[in-house]
């Protein structure tokens, strides 16, 4: 099980050009031994879901600092579902208020990270959540 590598898609939906956070997280996740695919900027929800499918990822992490998260995050989720990718672990971060986080958590974004979150915390959360999931999958098999 420890041999299995977590595959993560780091995505930048929308027109927002702020990619410092996304690229930093991508570098950190890679340092943690995950396989990281970075979408590049200016992606539509369709493009992100399509890449997630092609790359067969376990995790999709979205970064938005433009305030468009309440529109675009749910759209990415819908597009993933359309492609039979509802099982991926959804997360993300950016300038997102606590209230918005709460609302998005009902839509499948169980955990979102705000400014100042240590990147280690994010990496560890992905690691432990995925390990938990895989353990449960094995038990149920």
């Amino acid at each position: 099980m420890s041999e299995r590598k977590i595959r993560v898609l780091v995505g930048k939906p929308g027109l927002d050009g702020h990619d410092r956070g996304a690229k930093t997280i991508a570098a950190v996740l890679r340092d943690h031994g995950m396989e990281v695919i970075y979408t590049g900027l200016h992606q539509t929800p369709e493009m992100i879901a399509e890449t997630a499918l092609q790359e067969d990822v376990d995790v999709v992490g979205l970064s938005i600092l433009s305030g468009a998260h309440m529109t675009l995050f749910p759209r990415v989720r819908e597009e993933l579902e359309k492609r039979g990718m509802a099982h991926v672990l959804l997360t993300g971060g950016g300038i997102i208020s606590a209230e918005d986080m709460e609302e998005l958590s009902k839509l499948g974004f169980s955990k979102l990270f705000g400014p100042g979150t240590p990147t280690e915390e994010i990496a560890n959360w992905i690691q432990s959540t995925m390990e938990e999931r895989w353990k449960n999958e094995e038990v149920s098999r």
Partner: peptide, 11 residues
Amino acid sequence: HARSLGEVGQV
């Protein structure tokens, strides 16, 4: 424009 969805007036 379709690509403007959710971004209008935000930043």
